[in-house]
Design a protein around this nucleic acid. Structure first.
Lengths: 204, 204
DNA sequence: CTCTTATTGTACTCCTCGGTACATAAAACT
DNA sequence: AGTTTTATGTACCGAGGAGTACAATAAGAG
């Protein structure tokens, strides 16, 4: 089989650049000229490699989940629930205030409100956020079954509370809040989050 | 002075309709055809009355602050800080789950991320959110001076915590969260919010 | 009734958008 | 070598965006 002319760019790297633009501008606010310029390629190369703007955005979503947002999954693996939540919030603040990324959260500002043509993207992003909620909820269910969470607290409500904080911080960051300001909010949250029930080193 | 042909629509009502469209679609996602159709007028009438799309959006911002979002100001006038905060959160949930309005918060999703051309709008909306933060902060400063807030709590941090909850709820609502789900979050917040220090009826 | 003024509706303008045709270039295969 | 295959770059396409020119219309002023 003939292999043809080799590609002159790294698709993963180009995707990372595209993610940054979508992150900064949102799906609709990111134009193809701005995207391709950031990616360092021309338009036909983008279409040949990624399909179209929508497909590029979806691949950027995956990239975000596996890259910048991977800290959530990692944090949830902690044996003690309270530490998992603490680590999630620390990771959130770190990401939101990382000067090497656009301000805010890609999953929030990628397509929070949009024209009719982008409603599919909007829904998919909302589903991703919902998946995050589910992951936290499941982790808190586990904590409850392990006696790692007070009996009178509902994992679903607590998970939604945590997502509310995360998404609220994302809006603060988009509006220019500093790392210190967000850290203070997290500090308040952790002051009121249920204290450990089980010993840190007992299980898992 | 000759008065000319009379206007055939009510500007305030038309502005309300425009607000709903901007609320639903965001600044960039709202097209002029969709706007004017909802307003029940044609394009030249819109330009003659409001200036242009950007001016229309800014007037919609004012309308939002004085209308749907006016509950914040009202709540802050309550004599007891904890009741003020409770009322703000109740009002937030009520607004976010009001089926007569688009899902979510206009001030958050109006222009959270956008193209370069709309950055002025984006900044102005962020300033509005910041003004809300300032109003809450001032109210909590007052509470502190009145002995209505524990000494070890910083009004600024607490205010930002509250805004984080409000904006986080706005994202939840945009993603389809129900009134009940949001109420549960608020319940959790109020469980941990500092209890009254002064008597409810002493001052003011 | 006529003149003036301001709104209305249609039909445009120009611009940018996402997406693509097509010719050229650079590799592998025979 | 020549052929095949794939990527690149330019230059385009139709669609939809915001904004406007202009003629028609509806009131008050004289």
């Amino acid at each position: 089989m003939a292999a043809g002319r080799p590609r002159e760019f790294d698709p993963d790297e180009a995707l990372d650049r595209a993610l940054e633009v979508f992150w900064h501008r949102g799906y609709e606010g990111a134009s193809l000229p701005e995207l391709t310029k950031a990616m360092g390629i021309n338009r036909p190369s983008m279409y040949a490699t990624f399909g179209n703007k929508e497909a590029l955005f979806r691949k950027a979503m995956d990239r975000y989940a596996e890259g910048p947002a991977a800290y959530v999954r990692a944090a949830l693996e902690r044996p003690v629930a309270r530490e998992a939540i603490e680590q999630i919030l620390a990771g959130t603040v770190a990401l939101l205030s990382d000067p090497t990324h656009p301000k805010g959260c890609f999953a929030v500002q990628g397509a929070l409100a949009c024209g009719e043509a982008s409603e599919g993207i909007q829904k998919d992003l909302a589903d991703r956020r919902m998946a995050g909620l589910e992951a936290v909820r499941k982790r808190l269910e586990r904590a409850k079954s392990e006696g790692d969470l007070p009996d009178d607290l509902d994992p679903e409500n607590l998970a939604r509370f945590l997502m509310t904080i995360m998404h609220g911080l994302a809006v603060q960051a988009a509006g220019g809040a500093t790392r210190q300001q967000m850290e203070q909010v997290v500090k308040l949250v952790m002051m009121v989050w249920p204290k450990n029930v089980k010993r840190p080193d007992r299980k898992n």
